[in-house]
Design a protein around this nucleic acid. Structure first.
Lengths: 128, 128
DNA sequence: TTTGTCAATCGTTGATTAACGATATTGAGT
DNA sequence: ACTCAATATCGTTAATCAACGATTGACAAA
């Protein structure tokens, strides 16, 4: 892919980069893999397969997707392969969501409420 | 929607909830919609379609996906529909990624490095 | 060299997604 | 009732995804 992935403090990543990271996490099994790698804080071999309860080839495919997105890194160890999280790869999405949360606090509109405050009477055109 | 997703400080959401939110953001067009809703901090009608440069039906489908995930809320206004972000729906994923970042700081393992330069304190089960 | 183990790849199936044009629906205004 | 504008939905096509079993590949140890 392209290298639009420079992690700069104020700048947020492109839509494509954010979508790529989100897509890597867009399956429960892959979220669980990330959790697993995080909880052990160290690499695991094929115990991931046993933990997920899926076929070995399926888990390998999920790992391939995570590696393709750069979220997970694999190093060849003895007979196994040593997986670990690439936390800095998750940073763009984390910063994006944090920025949303911050803007939320300083904004007038709360949650589902579309136009800031909406009483029964018509507020006449705040949202049109 | 069962409430397995209570937003408590230490508790993180389930794999399914996190994957659902991530999936909603797993397409560049949908990330752009979220950005659009964030930047205007108010609701927009069909200008989203014009901004994205996609067909109206395609944008409507993306909005449907975002609404189904609870990330976007739509209210019927005059002839249009008023869309807005549901920031609290994004919170679980944001907290999950933040938790990963925090654990990263307090952890010995840096980014791509798999086994964190450990001597021999591990019972040699996995990873060296 | 052979063996054993773990992981990646292949090939397939069914399900889901993305995108579009065309059509239907909704509701305010005339 | 009719009309107009904004969305949603339908129907289709091509593409991608998820899952599995079976096979292949890599490599340390016997």
């Amino acid at each position: 892919m392209e290298n639009t992935e420079t992690v700069s403090p104020p700048e947020l990543a492109s839509n494509e980069v954010l979508a790529t990271i989100a897509k890597a996490l867009a399956h429960p099994a892959r979220v669980q893999i990330v959790r697993l790698l995080l909880s052990r804080s160290s690499c695991i071999g094929g115990e991931i397969t046993q933990e997920l309860g899926l076929a070995q080839s399926t888990v390998s495919e999920h790992l391939r997707i995570l590696k393709a997105a750069g979220v997970v890194v694999g190093e060849i160890e003895h007979p196994r392969i040593c997986y670990s999280l690439s936390v800095q790869r998750l940073a763009p999405l984390s910063e994006f969501l944090t920025a949303i949360g911050l803007q939320y606090q300083t904004s007038a509109l709360k949650d589902g409420l579309c136009c800031p405050l909406e009483p029964s009477t018509e507020p006449s055109g705040s949202c049109s």
